[in-house]
Simulated scan of single mutants.
Amino acid sequence: MTTAEAAELLGVSVPAVLRMAKYGRIAPFHKIPGRTDPHTFHRDEVTRVLAERNLS
């Protein structure tokens, strides 16, 4: 899924997802060079982060 899709599922902004990836809170599946939305994420990883956020 794209960064925008992950952000929508998590209920955060795209920049927030990119910060989460930068600091290791969510693991990107693939970084696409030259795109404005440069990361893709596995749905399982996004679901894991969502579950952790709901437990907090």
Rank of each mutant, 00 (worst) to 15 (best):
M1Q: 14
M1P: 05
M1F: 02
M1V: 09
T3F: 00
A4T: 14
A4I: 03
E5P: 00
A7K: 08
E8W: 00
E8K: 10
L9Y: 09
L9F: 09
L10P: 04
L10F: 02
L10T: 02
V12H: 03
V12D: 09
S13N: 04
V14K: 11
V14H: 06
A16N: 12
V17M: 06
A21K: 03
Y23A: 00
G24R: 07
G24D: 07
R25H: 10
I26L: 13
I26K: 06
A27T: 14
A27P: 00
A27W: 00
P28N: 08
F29I: 00
K31T: 14
K31G: 02
K31C: 07
I32H: 14
P33C: 04
G34K: 13
G34D: 12
R35H: 10
T36A: 07
T36R: 13
D37A: 06
P38F: 07
P38S: 09
H39I: 03
T40L: 09
T40R: 15
T40K: 09
F41M: 05
F41R: 05
H42C: 02
H42R: 09
R43M: 11
R43T: 11
E45H: 08
V46E: 08
V46P: 06
T47Y: 03
T47W: 04
T47P: 00
T47C: 06
R48T: 08
V49T: 10
V49Y: 03
V49R: 02
V49L: 15
E52P: 07
E52A: 15
R53W: 05
N54G: 15
N54C: 09
N54Y: 11
L55R: 15
L55Y: 10
S56P: 11
S56V: 14
S56G: 15
